[in-house]
């Protein structure tokens, strides 16, 4: 199975692309062009830019077996506010994201999860390494519906792995 390559677009390119797609009357077909996990994560991040969040260019991504949680370590600074946004582009896949301190305590202040993307907000109480957990799920019935409605092309047959991407912003 070959997943789509990680994008080389800059965040500004993504913001433009997402904005253009928002204008299209047939957004489902257009979304096939941005059918990548990272693009979904950036898509989730886009509305937050207007609220003063600087969204980083550097990202995490890969493939994972649905249901198997991923743990990303990341340095956060007390005094900043953070949002982490996760995405998956695989038809039938969903994603959730949450954040924990070094003791394993949840520090997420608010969160959302909507199908292909999710987000969690945190205000770290100390400058330290934190842990962001990403969990994907795969539903074959949803996959059929997604493929029928989104005309997803070129991702191949499901072979037990889905793509995932994680981006973050701060202010």
């Amino acid at each position: 199975m070959t997943l789509p390559p990680t994008s080389v677009f800059s965040r500004r390119d993504w913001l433009l692309l997402v904005a253009v797609i928002g204008m299209l009357p047939f957004a489902e077909k257009a979304s096939a062009f941005v059918n990548e996990a990272i693009s979904y994560a950036f898509e989730a991040a886009t509305p937050y830019v207007e609220h003063g969040f600087e969204v980083r260019e550097d990202t995490w991504s890969g493939e994972v077996e649905p249901g198997k949680p991923l743990l990303v370590r990341h340095q956060l600074f007390r005094g900043n506010e953070y949002w982490f946004w996760a995405g998956t582009s695989w038809p039938g896949a969903t994603v959730k994201v949450d954040i924990f301190d070094s003791e394993g305590n949840s520090i997420g202040l608010e969160s959302f999860a909507k199908g292909n993307f999710a987000g969690v907000r945190a205000l770290p109480e100390k400058t330290a390494t934190y842990f962001i957990r990403v969990v994907t799920q795969y539903d074959p019935e949803k996959a059929k519906l997604d493929e029928a409605s989104e005309a997803v092309e070129g991702v191949g047959d499901y072979e037990g792995m889905v793509d995932w991407g994680l981006v973050y912003g701060y202010r």
Binding site: L70, V72, S106, F112, A113
Partner: peptide, 24 residues
């Protein structure tokens, strides 16, 4: 968008998944 329920605590010493080694 739906609110996502997160567990209040996880055991980092016995994490049942994969630790991502990529550092940002």
């Amino acid at each position: 968008q739906e609110e996502a329920a997160a567990p209040e605590r996880i055991d980092l010493t016995n994490f049942p998944g994969k630790i991502v080694d990529q550092v940002v």
